[in-house]
Amino acid sequence: MTTEERPPLTRDRVLAAATRVADVEGLKALTMRRLGAELGVEAMSLYHHLPGKEALLDGVADALIAEIQAAAADVVDDATGWKERLRRTFLAARVVVLRHPWAPALLGARTTVPPRLFAYYDGIVGTMTGAGLSHRLAHRAVHAFGTMALGFTQELFRPEAAGGAADVDAAEADLAAMAERLPHLTAMVAAELHDAADPVLGWCDSQTEFEFTLALLLDGLERAAAAQR
């Protein structure tokens, strides 16, 4: 493609290319030089739109939230009741994050809140208070949901988030070594090893567990809402 045929460089185009690179090569591969190569431009030209690597990552995080917002908007229109609206919102967020498995690590590492995140959570709180839940109860619910609102659960120990990788052989060896000293924990882990087809974002973050936890929280919130009346 010649310079004349190349689309103009915009912030949105840069962020879309950054997302593609992260999807294919991982978050560590996302550098200004690699991004310039993806777009067919010199890395320095990217600084007009995003002044450095941290600004780039902040932009990718904000674009991710925009994608989650759009996915949620597509599924909640015909939802009946606040519980179903929240359930569909969180599951829509999960579909997005499963498309971008680097998302939990990126969001967990940001030192600034993505601008769109405030609007996203404002909608979640509005869904609850609009149904009669008090602001106090909505506040407690936001804390209880944690990162589930963003489509994933935060693992207590997750080597990938720190830049490592899960070593399956080492994990199995550790499991065998634990068997005698920690029989109950070992039996639980062995019983819950996930099928390869089960969408997983971490050691324990499977689709079944995500939906199970979400249902427990929504049911408990419904009981708390009834008690406040």
Results as ranks from 00 to 15, higher is better:
81 G>A: 02
82 W>T: 03
85 R>N: 03
87 R>I: 10
92 A>I: 00
92 A>S: 12
95 V>P: 00
96 V>P: 00
100 H>D: 00
101 P>M: 00
107 L>D: 00
107 L>P: 00
110 R>L: 13
113 V>G: 00
117 L>C: 00
120 Y>P: 01
120 Y>G: 03
123 G>T: 02
123 G>S: 01
125 V>S: 01
130 G>H: 07
131 A>C: 12
135 H>V: 10
136 R>K: 08
137 L>E: 06
138 A>L: 12
139 H>N: 15
140 R>P: 01
142 V>G: 03
143 H>Q: 10
145 F>S: 11
146 G>W: 05
147 T>G: 04
149 A>S: 13
150 L>P: 07
153 T>L: 12
156 L>R: 14
165 A>N: 12
165 A>T: 15
165 A>C: 10
165 A>P: 01
169 D>A: 15
170 A>V: 08
175 L>P: 05
176 A>N: 02
182 L>W: 15
182 L>M: 10
183 P>R: 10
190 A>H: 06
196 A>S: 08
197 A>M: 08
198 D>Y: 08
202 G>C: 06
203 W>I: 12
210 F>Q: 07
212 F>P: 01
212 F>G: 04
212 F>C: 09
213 T>A: 11
214 L>S: 01
216 L>A: 04
220 G>V: 09
220 G>T: 07
220 G>S: 12
221 L>A: 07
221 L>G: 10
221 L>E: 09
224 A>V: 01
